[in-house]
Every structure is written in C-alpha cells, then in structure tokens.
Amino acid sequence: MAIGDDLENRMSAKNHPGIGSKGLDRSGFGPPPRPAPLVYSDLGDDALSPSQWTSWLVPMFVVANVIVFVVTMFVNNCPAHSHGPNRHCVATFLGRLSFEPLRNNPLFGPSSRTLEKLGSLQWDKVVEKHEAWRLLTCIWLHAGVIHLAANMLSLVFIGVRLEQQFGFVRIGVIYLMSGIGGSILSSLFIRNSISVGASGALFGLLGSMLSELLTNWTIYSNKIAALLTLLFVIAINLAIGILPHVDNFAHVGGFLTGFLLGFVLLARPQFKWLARENMPQGRRMTSKYKPYQYLLWLLSLALLVLGFVMALVLLFKGEDGNDHCRWCRYLRCIPTSRWSCDDV
C-alpha cells in the first residue's frame, strides 16, 4: 500500500468516529445510536393501564343486588297479603316470591311498605328518626325486576371496564361514595316519597368516566369523539330522569360525586414517567403527573369535602332544598299535557 493511501485512510478514520479503534463499540459496528424520542405510541395500549386488573368487584355487586332483591321479595310475601278483589299477585307460580299487582307496582316488584321496612330512602326516617344508614342501604334495593335488570346491565357495561383499568379499590370507592352522594341530594329535595336503586352510584361511574377523560386528555387520540359520545349518553340518561316517579336528584348527586372523585382517583401518570427506566438519566421525568392534574386533584377534593359537609349539615338541620332552589324541582319532573308533577 502506498504511503499516501495509508495517510488517507488514517485521516478518514480520524474524521469518522465510527471507524477505527477509538470509534468502534464492542460489536465493531460503530457507536450505538441515540435512543429515539419517546412518543406515546411507543408504550402501546399497556400505557393506559400498567396493570390489567381482573374485574371481580363489579360482578359481586351484581350478585349482591340480585340476592337482596330475592330477599326483598321473600319478605314481601305477596300471597299472604293478597286478600281482596284487587289484590291479585303477578306470577303466582313463584309462590312467596310473586310480584305485587301491577296497579300497585308496574315494575314487577315488592310493595312500598316492604321497601320502607328494609331500608329505602325516606326523609323523615333519615332526619327525624336519625336512621342515616338508609343513605347507604337504599342503593341495594330495587323497585322491581325491570328496575333491577336495567341497573345491573348498566353496571356491567360501565363498571367492568373501569375496574379492569383502575382496580377494585378506586372503582368501589367511586361506586359507594356516589351512591351516598346521590342519596344525600335526594333527601334534601324529596320529602314525600321513598327512593331506592343503584342509579346514583351508576351515574357516579358515568361522571368518573367524564372526569377521567378530561384529566387524561393528552393520552387519547379520538378525544373529541369520545367526549361527545359520553356527553350524549349522560344527557340522555339525565333526560329520562325528568319523567314522573324517577329520582333524578339521586342521579345528579351521584354524577357530581363521581365526577369529582374521577379527578381525585383516576388520573393517569405521564407516559414518560412510566418509561423512565428506559430513558437516559438526564431525560427522566421527575413528576408523575402534569401540573394541571395536580390542580384538578386539589380543587376536586376540596369541592367534594365541602359539598358533603354542607349537604349533610343542611340535611340534618331539616332544611328543604327546594326553599333554596325554586327551579330545582324541574330536575325531577317537568309537567306536560300527559302528566302532572303535583303528586311527585
């Protein structure tokens, strides 16, 4: 080899660190490439849920509600009280579990007396007789098979997916606290009828889905479509609540409770924080959540605590919510030519 060629090769090796003894890595193919910038898609679907939980609490809630309904019908014992010309039980082949006459309960269920006996929500018993436990027991009772089936199907449809993503502890807290929140608001505005059902807890899960979408806004690709779809579902369900004999105050109270709890319990960590172990030391994320997530967490927690304290104080002081909000009665029933809201 000529001296000029050897000098040219050495100069080339000096100008290209990937060639020559000092520029080679251990494999002999040059230095390792710089890691590609982290993008959200790099983490795949698992980034949305680092641990995929198995849903067992929501199915247990469904089983518990069904068992409570069977016990309710057993206690009701329609055949034992079916004496008289207008007291014909429905589905008498069920024996003691047969339903009340449809003119008394069109939802195929027990009598209001039985529901009251087993823990339905009733203002005078909660406030005057200090039976605060009814704020919780009423969410496990249902007015009939139709009522039970609609709520349990909704619970499975909404709750299983949420529990798989966030675990049984957080979803269980949201479900129960939303049910209680709905009961408290219902008691503040409704005094002349009883209320039962898990609808307040279910609306809490819907509310938490909305706040989860908002607080984790940056990780969703079709965020606008998801938001519009969720708002449409919520609006339809709230609109149904303006029909007579539907406790929309429980729906609203449960929704607001779940909405605030979603900001507190369902915030997801930043993607770069989840992948911090695979990043260079100088580029690792030091904050698990974004600043706006911390702000929403603090604000929602403060509003939640303040709202519960104020509502409970007003309730047990005997205050009537309708005296402080004249138009709120239309949240429960809007009179039309087809029905009146006087007896609601």
Rank of each mutant, 00 (worst) to 15 (best):
A2M: 10
D6M: 15
N9D: 12
S12Q: 11
G20R: 00
S21W: 13
K22C: 09
D25S: 05
G30L: 00
R34G: 06
A36T: 13
S51A: 10
S55F: 12
S55D: 12
V62P: 03
F69E: 02
M73I: 03
C78F: 09
P79N: 08
G84Q: 08
G84D: 12
L94E: 06
R96Q: 12
S98M: 05
S98G: 02
E100W: 07
L102T: 05
F108C: 04
P110C: 02
L115R: 00
W123L: 06
V127R: 15
V127S: 07
E128G: 10
K129T: 10
W133L: 08
W133N: 03
L136I: 14
R161I: 05
F168C: 15
G172M: 06
G172H: 07
S178E: 02
L185C: 06
L188G: 01
S193L: 12
A201V: 04
G204R: 01
I219T: 10
L231M: 03
N237Y: 06
A239L: 13
A239T: 12
I240N: 08
I240G: 07
F249C: 04
F249W: 07
T257G: 10
T257C: 14
G258H: 13
L265V: 10
A267W: 09
L274A: 08
Y289L: 05
K290T: 12
P291W: 01
S300E: 02
L303C: 08
L303Q: 04
A311L: 04
A311I: 01
L315T: 00
L315V: 02
G321F: 00
L331Q: 05
C333T: 11
C341V: 11
D343S: 15
